[in-house]
Nucleic acid binder design. Structure first.
Lengths: 172, 172
DNA sequence: ATAATATTCTTCGTGTACGATATAATAATG
DNA sequence: CATTATTATATCGTACACGAAGAATATTAT
C-alpha cells in the first residue's frame, strides 16, 4: 500500500538519481582514466585560476574546505598538483598544477558522459536555458537559510591577485 | 583569466550546490534529531512497504545494494530496523521497522529544510511540474547508457508480496 | 607590547556511496 | 542427480563530504 509521494519528494528522488548517475560515471572515469570526477573538477578549477588558495578553491567549486584538502592530498601524492605556502601570509596555502597536471587536464575526458553532453547540446538554446534555470531555481530555494560556515554557495569565483601570485615560493 | 563555462558545466555546478545543500541539511538533521537524510529515506521506504528485501529497497530508492546495507547496519544497531531471513528463499533478507522505528518515522522531520518545502509548495502547480519535469529530463539524459549492474534507475517500486510476507521468521 | 580574537588550513571522526569480490542459496542444465 | 549458472546479500577497499576541533599565523583591542 505505497504512500503517495508528493512533488517535492519526487524532486529529491530525481536528484538522487542524477547524483548516482554522476557518481557511477565518476567511478568509471577513475577506472579507465585514473581521475575521479571531483579530482577533475579541482584540477580544472586550478587550471582556470593558475594559482589560488585552497580556501578560494573550495568556495569556487562549492565544496567544504575539508573535502578539498583531502582531494588535493591525493592529487599532490600523484604529482599533479603542488602546494605552495604563502610568504606574505603564512597561513595561506596556494595550489598549482604541475607540468604533469597540466598535460593531464589538457586531455581530460568530459566530466559527464558523452551521451549527456551530446543530448544536452542537441537541445535548442532556449531549452538548455530553461533546464539550467529550473535547477538553479531549485538550488536557490534550498539555499535560502543555509550555509553560514566557511562557504557561500553562490559567490563570485575568486582568484589569487597578481600581487599574491608574486608573493610565494615553493615549499621543499 | 577565468575560462568560460558552458551551459552543461553550469548544470553540473548547480547540481553540486543542490547536493551540498542537501548534505548540509542532512548533517544538521543528524545532529538535532539523530538520523541522517539517507537513513530517513530508508526508513520511510520501509514504512511505505511494510516489509521488503534489501535488494528491492535499494532499487526503490536508487542506491546501490552496498550502500543500503551499510545504512541498514546502522539502523539495526540502533534498534530501529529488524532484518528477517526469508524462509522460502533463504538468500533473501527482509527488513522491517521496529516499534521504536515506527514511532521515529512518525514524527520524522522533513527531509529538505522547511524553507524549501515552503517555497516549493508556494509555487503554482504548473511551476512545480515544470521544475520536476526539468530535472527528470536531465536525469534521463544522464542515464541513457548507464546502469547495467544491479539497479535500474527508473523502475517501478517493489514490495514484498503478501505470500512472501507470510513466509518469514525473525532471526535471533 | 601583549592579550584576545579571527582567519586559514589540516586532522579527525562519522556517514555515505560505489564496484569488486566473497558467500551462500536457489535454479538450470546435462 | 551432480555440476554449473544465477541470484541475493554482505564485506572490503577507496573516495568523497561534512562539521568540529586543533595548530599556526595574523589582526585587533587593550
Amino acid at each position: 500500500m505505497a504512500r503517495e509521494k508528493d512533488v517535492s519528494e519526487e524532486v529529491l528522488v530525481t536528484i538522487r538519481q542524477i547524483v548516482r548517475a554522476i557518481g557511477i560515471h565518476s567511478k568509471k572515469l577513475a577506472k579507465t582514466y585514473g581521475l575521479t570526477g571531483p579530482q577533475l573538477i579541482v584540477m580544472q578549477e586550478i587550471a582556470d585560476r593558475e594559482v589560488l588558495t585552497t580556501g578560494d578553491l573550495a568556495k569556487n567549486i562549492s565544496l567544504s574546505h575539508a573535502t578539498v584538502t583531502s582531494i588535493v592530498d591525493r592529487l599532490v601524492a600523484r604529482g599533479l598538483v603542488n602546494r605552495i605556502r604563502g610568504v606574505q601570509d603564512k597561513r595561506k596555502m596556494y595550489v598549482q598544477l604541475t607540468e604533469e597536471g597540466h598535460t593531464q587536464v589538457m586531455n581530460k575526458p568530459s566530466m559527464l558522459h558523452d551521451t549527456f553532453i551530446k543530448s544536452f547540446k542537441g537541445l535548442e538554446t532556449w531549452e538548455q536555458t530553461l533546464l539550467l534555470s529550473s535547477i538553479q531555481r531549485i538550488a536557490a530555494m534550498m539555499n535560502a537559510s543555509e550555509i553560514k560556515t566557511d562557504s557561500l554557495l553562490i559567490s563570485h569565483p575568486v582568484s589569487a591577485t597578481a600581487e599574491e601570485i608574486r608573493e610565494y615560493y615553493k615549499e621543499e
